[in-house]
């Protein structure tokens, strides 16, 4: 265990834990856009910037992104230092210039008193903040169907050669976890389309409800050795089956009791 001070509060934390987690556990409002527990910290949005110092540093201060900074004994953290708040505001302003049409970023900016970006707004913006969550989650799940391409301000998220990604299994994890909801997908009947690739949704063999894609189910049974048959029925029908089976067993025991 290490002991540190965050905004005046003395706290304990597990060694190796990242500062941002401890800050969030304290209920302190530090914004972050690219952080997700499913994947390694990335440090792209830089909003979780905090000021750190130590008694032994003689007044010297350092600015670090808390999502990537492991807790240290004796650390004195200021999450609302003037310089930190100013930097955060500038960063949000920059994001707003990149994504002028994103309601999520507009809201975040409004929280910091910014109604309009003071920089040159991007024309025809796709409103992607390039946090990389989609690609990182996809890669972590073992598919790596999409990735970042190009450099600098031209960086964007794309499938290989901008064609339907061969490794995509249509799980939607990229779209669902996108903090600005900019990855489009459609569902119509038993067809789901994402990244210009069409997928068949499994139809519950009992009730006809749509569940996950056929490709995802196949991938799961192959990767994790789960019988493919499990995926043919929806969760509600699985429960009904369970109830029936348990009821049947109960019926047997009732008969047994009657017989004895």
């Amino acid at each position: 265990m290490v002991h540190l001070t965050i905004d005046g509060t003395r706290v304990q934390a597990k060694e190796g834990e990242m500062l941002l987690k401890v800050i969030k556990q304290l209920g302190i409002d530090v914004p972050s856009l690219c952080d997700h527990d499913a994947v390694e910290p990335f440090g792209a949005c830089r909003l979780c910037l905090v000021e750190i110092t130590k008694q032994s540093w003689d007044g010297w201060k350092k600015y670090v992104t808390s999502c990537l900074y492991p807790v240290e004994d004796g650390l004195i953290v200021n999450t609302q230092a003037e310089k930190v708040v100013e930097a955060r505001k500038t960063l949000i302003d920059l994001q707003l210039a990149r994504c002028p049409g994103s309601p999520e970023i507009q809201q975040l900016a409004a929280d910091y008193g910014i109604t309009q970006t003071s920089y040159e707004p991007k024309i025809d913006s796709d409103n992607c903040i390039l946090c990389g969550l989609c690609t990182r989650i996809c890669e972590h799940m073992g598919f790596a169907a999409i990735s970042t391409v190009d450099r600098g301000p031209d960086r964007r998220i794309a499938s290989p050669l901008d064609e339907p990604p061969p490794d995509c299994i249509g799980c939607l994890a990229c779209a669902i976890n996108c903090p600005t909801n900019v990855i489009p997908y459609t569902e119509k009947g038993n067809k789901r389309t994402i990244w210009d690739k069409e997928f068949e949704l499994i139809t519950c063999s009992k009730c006809g409800r749509k569940t996950i894609t056929r490709d995802f189910a196949r991938a799961l049974s192959k990767m994790r050795d789960i019988p493919e048959a499990y995926f043919e029925v929806c969760d509600a029908c699985h429960r009904a089956e369970t109830a029936t089976n348990m009821g049947r067993i109960a019926g047997w025991s009732r008969r047994e009791e009657a017989a004895s």
């Binding site: 990335f42 440090g43 830089r46 920059l94 903040i129 390039l130 450099r151 301000p153 031209d154």
Partner: peptide, 8 residues
């Protein structure tokens, strides 16, 4: 292009 301050 990974982090905002440098890229934007």
């Amino acid at each position: 292009g990974k982090c905002t301050p440098c890229r934007e």
